[in-house]
Design a protein around this nucleic acid. Structure first.
Length: 284
DNA sequence: AACCACTTCAACCGCTTTTGG
DNA sequence: CCCAAAAGCGGTTGAAGTGGT
């Protein structure tokens, strides 16, 4: 009864890998590819579970792994993507070449989460804490809210771009929002525009990460200190979303639908149509 | 120097999803 | 379509490292 173990646990080594094991695994995969992870340890002569081999390879031994501390830009990207995707570490990692889901998860749990807390933001929702929030009106889940925000922008984009008969390079979106759709959107010109808007918003009300004023200091994982916008710390639920760490979402918040659609629509109207299909050319 | 508290991150565990027969 | 195996994923753990007293 119960699940069959992923591998025969007896006589298997656990814990940290030693350099000899690493070398054995690298040599084997370079020679034969990983093939079936389950059978790899036996074939390679390792006393490890296949799962452990896969983890070791994908997280540490792969040649394209980027080691070293995260840059400020990478950290910002992780925060922004987390706002869209939530704890979908693998999906977030796919947007940061050379970084693994485990690494990003650790970064989030050890640095970024604390940083958001330090700034008075809820790491789950990326919104300012609202300790007296009414219990009668439960908040929508972050995923739902983000999906609604992106869906709003998507609908505007679809309306605009279908008019131009040039809707992305992907099939029409599903009626039920597909989480991966948000990644595609993020990578599309729409996503770029949101990021652009974010950058512009910072110049008006600098984001907590980049601004420098009389404020709370926090340390980033990359060793850079940053200042917390006084508007944000202790802000109430009436704080404009544009002041938050990810100003990009202010443009399509469903908390003020009028602003949302107006801004998003304006944003889309402002697309440089003559140039904006260049991203298609980059695709092989 | 010794101890303790705290932080970091590599690795494990168990669940879910995907794949193939 | 069903089922089992394999792969993938996210949460959690614990050893090692670091800083403070």
């Amino acid at each position: 009864m119960g699940r069959t173990p992923c591998c025969d646990k007896k006589d298997l080594k656990k814990g940290p890998w030693d350099p000899e094991e690493d070398e054995t695994l690298i040599n084997y995969i370079n020679k034969h590819g990983h093939g079936s992870w389950r059978s790899l340890p036996k074939l390679a002569g390792l006393r490890r579970c296949g799962k452990s081999c896969r983890l070791r390879w994908t997280n540490y031994l792969r040649p394209d792994i980027k080691r070293g501390p995260f840059t400020v830009d990478e950290e910002k990207l992780v925060i922004q993507l987390h706002a869209i995707l939530g704890n979908r570490w693998a999906a977030i990692a796919s947007q940061l070449p050379g970084r693994t889901d485990n690494e990003i998860k650790n970064l989030w749990n050890t640095h970024l989460k604390k940083r958001l807390l330090c700034m008075g933001l809820d790491p789950l929702t990326h919104e300012p804490f609202t300790p007296c929030a009414p219990t009668t009106a439960p908040r929508s889940s972050p995923a739902t809210r983000h999906m609604a925000q992106w869906e709003s922008a998507r609908l505007e984009a679809e309306a605009r771009l279908s008019k131009e008969s040039l809707f992305f390079n992907s099939p029409p979106p599903l009626s039920k929002p597909d989480p991966d759709f948000f990644l595609r959107l993020w990578n599309s010109q729409v996503g770029e525009s949101f990021r652009k808007l974010n950058r512009e918003a910072k110049t008006e009300c600098p984001s907590p990460i980049s601004q420098a004023s009389s404020s709370t200091k926090c340390a980033s994982a990359s060793g850079v200190t940053f200042d917390v916008c006084p508007n944000i710390v202790g802000s109430s639920s009436s704080t404009p979303r544009s002041n938050r760490i990810d100003a990009s979402f202010s443009s399509c918040s469903n908390e003020s639908e009028e602003d949302s659609s107006d801004t998003a629509f304006q944003l889309l109207l402002d697309f440089p149509i003559n140039n904006d299909m260049s991203f298609l050319e980059d695709v092989d």
